[in-house]
Amino acid sequence: MCHRCGVSDEAVQAVRLRAPRHRVSRRAIGYWTVRAGLGWLVLLAAQIVALVLGWSWLRDWWTVTVPVTVLLAAVHLIVMPQWRYRVHRWEVTTEAVYTQAGWFNQERRIAPVSRIQTVDTDRGPFEQVFRLSNVTVTTASAAGPLRIDGLDRETADQLVEQLTADTQAERGDAT
């Protein structure tokens, strides 16, 4: 209950912030799996290299560390991408950009279109393999650029076009 917000209790009870409407591309699941999988592979490779080089502490413990790494990796790679896919959402109106991201910790970000400073899109090597693209919208605040991960390319291009057109209509330095 927010007594000093100038909002009645009734309104507080009744109104909720819903999730953004659009999901990202399903291919993003594959992309997230591969990206996270590489991190785990590096960890595993490091252990194997250490084992080959014969570091004594690892010789006694590898029967524990390697299976634990594999198990954690498996759980992470099965759970995380699916969970992310359910969370990651976005929506753009003529007035505002609204995103939701994360999995274990989740975050929603809203910025008015009138305060947008830049709209970027870029494709890393893995994103290219999965034909994905991400869109980053920045405002004058160094905190909280809005990033939409795992969009399919056409959607991303359309989105950038729309946002650029909308922001061009605005005046001022948006700070």
């Binding site: 912030l17 953004p20 505002a96 809203i110």
Partner: peptide
Amino acid sequence: DDATALADAAIPGLLTPFLETA
């Protein structure tokens, strides 16, 4: 719920398209 109400009251209109009643 308070967060939603606070943000909505601070900048009226920005959140409106994304709000829903129970």
